[in-house]
Every structure is written in structure tokens, then in C-alpha cells.
Design a binder for these strands. Structure first.
Lengths: 258, 258
DNA sequence: ACGTGTGAAAATATTCACAGCT
DNA sequence: AGCTGTGAATATTTTCACACGT
């Protein structure tokens, strides 16, 4: 048990690597890409604490992985560490950002401004981690025209127009499952090539479009599977106390995170 | 590209399988467990459409995977299909539910009733897919005492008491990152053994506790990585039109999803 | 015929362990 | 002395392809 449920993912199912356009390091494994985001988060947190340099060991702990994995992952970006010393926090941070394509803030469209959509829109980590909500779309007349940090909620009829004008290639779908495919089709037709889907549906998309999904109930079901196999259901505490302390020392060791 | 970002995950990091308590089939791979949830969703959708029997091919399409994977996955549960025919929708559904430990509705605690917490609480798929929010916790005096479908929002001071009384082993953390670890510690001390974490922090937990995380910004960053490598950024449409139709035929072929 | 179940092959991912730089 | 970068070993996951039951 233990361990942050590392969300891996392979985005390219029929992926025969398309051979790269220009002169960059190639072929970063999917599993590694997924973790780069975690390393970046940890690095940002370290930078805020004023840490200038970090070892693979501490960074790994801060990111919730082991150090061998971290070093292997970073080796795919080329060498940015110094033997005997560690990694320069700000340098590595920048390099990961570049690798992830976060150089300038990326414009994102949010489709669906219900409870979830509003929660997502209000999420600060959104802006601080490289993204800018450039458009919000809904169909509810009550919501159309309301503004959030300078962005006006537009009607779904104007989706294509809005997406094209704001040059948006990434969209977040936060609409009911029943209309998710239709929304998806419209996004794709308008030129969106990457979609984060919160609706509990499989979206059909053409080859060149990536979809990632977040399914709350599925996550809980996975937890449920493991939980239901824990025999010791009823034995507990004072034992728990001990192991929590164990954990604390791990955290202390690396000076982790906000 | 294409392809639903299959969220895999290994929950047990240092997991040397604990050898099972009683007579059940053993050792379902993590990757398989994560997909069982998807199959279940697809099956439910098929059942609603009145489908009684389904082939591995159609079910796979409906779940967004290929059929070899699906068959291999299901083989870990023991045989529930009929050669030459397919799977009985309701039978397989039940079996997956049992496997995931969803026999009776599982009680879940929701910690944090801000925007995100409220969105999660309102999510219908929660109830319909095996979970029941049995407790809601926050610290905001404005929110304490408000009720949602028969559940009263309680103050964080009463967390342990509430968790113990409702026999909760699964909790969802939807609080700011700064207080997530503290909340987590309290949950663990109160006996929670499975946590779904929406705060962008690595949670330290003892061995016997599982954590899964959902990190919105990380998901977007992964999309960003792939998106930024799509050369054809500017070429588009009428080509898009064609490929969308392609996709439509795939969907039609399997009669998918809500 | 049809479609499941599964060994065996291939591809990915993780971990080990240590050479080599600072 | 300390810590990175990496080949080699291991483990896991995916895919292939076909025997087998209905």
C-alpha cells in the first residue's frame, strides 16, 4: 500500500512515433512525461522556499517517487544535474517547463460552467502552473454574459468562433455525459487538438486529437478494490500512531511541499 | 495520438503481495484494476440500453480499449464469457462490482466543502456508482450546519468522531494544499485507509494507507507536452471533417455510451 | 463459424548497482 | 565523499495469434 497513486497514462494508443520536427531530444517515455509535471510542482515549491539546489533524493521524496526513477526520468531530458552536487532548482524547473511546452501561458477553453466548471475556473493552480482560461462556454442563459476574471461566459453557439479567435488548442470538458460527445465534436471541428474530459464517457476523436480523462467514481472504485482487500479492517490505532511518526520523519527529511 | 488517456496507477509501491485471507482469485494486476472501473461503466450503459449480451470487441470499443486487453483483463477474474457468444452484461457487471468491493454502497467522507467539494458532492455518478457521501467536513462557520441530501456539514474538530461513527474507510480531500497534510493525518488517525487527494501535494501516509491523487494542472501539462509537439499546428479543417466521420463510424459500430 | 481464454512474444517501465565526474 | 547518469537485470503491461469450447 502506501504510495501516491501514480497516474500514468499513454496518450498515444496507435502511436508510431511521428519522428520529430526539429532539433530536440527525442522519445520521452509516457510514464516519464506524466511525472515531469510532478517534479515541476515539487521544484516550484522548493524555489518558493528559497532552495537553490536539490539532490535527486530530496526531489524524489518531495515528488513522491524513488530517486532511481527520478534520475532515469531526468536523464531523458539530457543532463541538467551536477555530480556530487545535485540539480539547480531554477534551471531544472525551466527546462521541464520548456519540455512540457509551457513557455508562455497556454490558452485553455473551459466548456461547462456548472458546479464543476466553476470549481475548475476558480482553481488558482491553473494560472500558476502555465494555463490561462481564455474562454468559458455554457448553454445556460442564466450564466451567459457573467464574467470571471475578465473572461465572459459565452453561449455554446459561439464555440467555434471563440476557440478560433483565441487560438485555443486545449479544452476542458465539464458538461454532463449526455452532451459530452457533441461538445467534443464541435471542439475538434473548431481546431482543438487536446481535451481533458471530466464527463464519464469515452469520447470518440480523430487520430490527431489527444484525450485525457478524469473519472472521479473510477478513482474511488480503484481505492475500493484495495480497501476491500485489507484484512486488518478492524485492528487499528496506537499502531497507526507509530506509522504516522515514521511518515513524519520521511517528510522532515526532505523538507517537502506546501 | 487519439486514445483516451488511460489512467493507470500502481497503488502499492513497496507492495510484496500480502497473500490473501480466504478463497478468492488472486493477484489482479494494477493496470487491470484501473480498467475494471471503465468496463463497469460501459456495462452499466449497455444494460440501460437493454443489451443482454456483448462481445469483447464491442465492450472494448465502448470502454475505449482494444479487445485483446479487455479479454486478458477479464481472464484475471476467471471466466465469465461464453465462447462463440460473448459476455452476459448483467452477470459480468455484478462480478466486476463484487471484485471492486462495491457490493453494498461504500461510505465516503468528503473533506472540504468549497467550490470543488460542492461540485464533487453534487456529482450524481457518485451515488450511482457505488458510493454514498456519509459525512462532509469543513472549517468555514458559514458552511457548518448546512445540509446536502440529508448530510450535515460538520466542523473539522469533529472529524475523528464522525469518521468513526459512520465507519468510513474512504475519504476525499478537497481542501487547500496548505492544510491537506494535516487533514490527511487526522483522517488516518481516525482510521481512514484510502484517500483520494485533490490537493496538489504529496501526502505522507503510513504503509497501510492508499492514496490516489487527481491533479488538474498536471493533466493539462501532459496534454500540453503532446500538443506542443504536434507539427501541423496550423493545418486543419475539412481534413478534420473527414476524420470526425471516421470516428463516428467507430462509435456507430459499437453502439456506445451515454 | 464465432468469439473467448491464454500461452508466448514484444514493448514499456522500474529498479539495481556502479562507473565516473566534481 | 557525494551524487549523477546509465547500462544491465527485473518486473509489468500490452499485443499477437490461435487452440478450444459452444
Amino acid at each position: 500500500m502506501t504510495a501516491q497513486g501514480d497516474q500514468l497514462s499513454q496518450v498515444g494508443e496507435g502511436a508510431n512515433r511521428p519522428s520529430l520536427p526539429s532539433g530536440e531530444q527525442r522519445d520521452i517515455p509516457e510514464a516519464t512525461v506524466a511525472r515531469l509535471a510532478l517534479y515541476l510542482r515539487a521544484l516550484t515549491s522548493l524555489a518558493e522556499r528559497g532552495t537553490a539546489t536539490v539532490s535527486s533524493d530530496s526531489l524524489a521524496t518531495a515528488a513522491g517517487v524513488n530517486s532511481a526513477k527520478l534520475r532515469k526520468d531526468l536523464s531523458h531530458l539530457g543532463s541538467y544535474g551536477v555530480r556530487g552536487v545535485g540539480y539547480d532548482v531554477s534551471l531544472l524547473s525551466q527546462h521541464i517547463q520548456r519540455t512540457l511546452g509551457l513557455d508562455e501561458n497556454r490558452a485553455v477553453a473551459l466548456i461547462g460552467f456548472g458546479h464543476l466548471g466553476q470549481a475548475l475556473a476558480g482553481y488558482a493552480g491553473f494560472a500558476s502552473r502555465g494555463f490561462r482560461i481564455a474562454a468559458i462556454i455554457d448553454t445556460d442563459p442564466e450564466l451567459i454574459g457573467s464574467r470571471l476574471r475578465g473572461v465572459t461566459v459565452e453561449h455554446a453557439d459561439r464555440l467555434a468562433e471563440v476557440v478560433r479567435r483565441a487560438q485555443i488548442s486545449i479544452a476542458v470538458i465539464a458538461v454532463p455525459a449526455a452532451v459530452a460527445q457533441e461538445v467534443c465534436d464541435r471542439l475538434v471541428a473548431a481546431g482543438v487538438t487536446s481535451i481533458l474530459n471530466f464527463a464519464p464517457t469515452v469520447l470518440g476523436v480523430p487520430e490527431h486529437v489527444d484525450v485525457r480523462k478524469v473519472d472521479l467514481a473510477a478513482e474511488l472504485q480503484i481505492l475500493s478494490f484495495h480497501d476491500s482487500r485489507k484484512s486488518h479492517k478492524t485492528l487499528s490505532n496506537n499502531f497507526v500512531g507509530a506509522t504516522v511518526d515514521q511518515r513524519m520523519s520521511v517528510v522532515a527529511k526532505s523538507g517537502v511541499i506546501s
